[in-house]
Design a protein around this nucleic acid. Sequence first.
DNA 1: GGCTGATGGTTAGCCTCCTAACGTTATCGA
DNA 2: TCGATAACGTTAGGAGGCTAACCATCAGCC
Lengths: 196, 196
Amino acid sequence: MLLLRDLPRYECLLEGARRFPELDPSACEVYLHVLRAGDEAFRSCGEPLEAHGISAGRFTVLMLLLRKRHDACGAMLTPAELADKAGVTRATMTGLIDTLERDGFVRREPDPNDRRMTPVTLTPAGEALLQGVVPAYFQRMGSLVAHLSESERRTLVTLLAKLVRGNETEDPSVTSTDGAAPAPVCPSGSLNSSVP
Amino acid sequence: MLLLRDLPRYECLLEGARRFPELDPSACEVYLHVLRAGDEAFRSCGEPLEAHGISAGRFTVLMLLLRKRHDACGAMLTPAELADKAGVTRATMTGLIDTLERDGFVRREPDPNDRRMTPVTLTPAGEALLQGVVPAYFQRMGSLVAHLSESERRTLVTLLAKLVRGNETEDPSVTSTDGAAPAPVCPSGSLNSSVP
DNA sequence: GGCTGATGGTTAGCCTCCTAACGTTATCGA
DNA sequence: TCGATAACGTTAGGAGGCTAACCATCAGCC
């Protein structure tokens, strides 16, 4: 991910708005800060993972498998399910599983009932890796927001959720000047990932 | 960028905290929302760029060059300066400039005074591309935060800035248990990119 | 039973990002 | 004056994203 490291000052945005009448300075400021904070959070919490020789994408896959295992039911997920939960394409998930299997952290086990599927399961090595890296990961997450009070955290979460939600329902703006969007097809209702 | 598309509910975080004592549920919730919002903003504002056949990275380079041009002084920047302002490595910037030059949007012109440098300048084609894409880009930025009031925007910016700032000065935590960090070497004072 | 369509996983090719190393050029001190 | 140091830009190799296309398999429906 790449971005502007040095955010322009508000006066510069005002000045830019003179050249670009579409520029809303306060909107731009929010946008830049959201991007900057997301990048900062991603990098910061990624450090303990890299220190243990694992990337954020691989870590996400392992955590999803671990969560599934603790759900008591069959401790496996198909690549398609993993891709959906992680928010990447199936092709990307194939690559992630490839390297994870190469390194011995997961195992593909063909499903005898439906031979199209190849569910993935966590190996003991994968679980051990998680046990080693998860504490540092969560600690870093805590120090990331250590300077925010509980009420500030609630406010921040509320505002970010509002931003994301408002943008989701607005998304069919690709077909602009067209009014009457057919239906907000956003796949909501998928927040029940870890409850059976 | 890859992430969890379906954020776990707060009860799930509380339940996860039982298995991982290091997990601070409110910190984790902030972290996930910051990441999710950053991803949403990035994708959303990236759409108009992709529609014009340009990626976010290339767009950033062109905008930096345009801003420099409007600063009246010499309208060129070296790859190292561009990399620094954009927050990527010099190697990455080389690749970006390669494709931009291949497509005719920028031009490398060796510096006669210091033959190590190869300043980059915006071509008329590059400027025309920006003229075509910038309005849609800023409009999308505005609709991204359209649901937030002015005071909500200010609050959000304040909280995100506090998070980033607090994390920057905390960053030498790699050498933890070591106390008395020598000096917060964060390259602050670099926010004056567009004022001579 | 045998098409047809939908679904699951993989492959191929491209782009962007990184680190590490290299060659070239300036600069500066002995 | 000349070698050491530092800075600039590039290259090589790897990882992680994406889209588009491809087979294999299942489910339905004549």
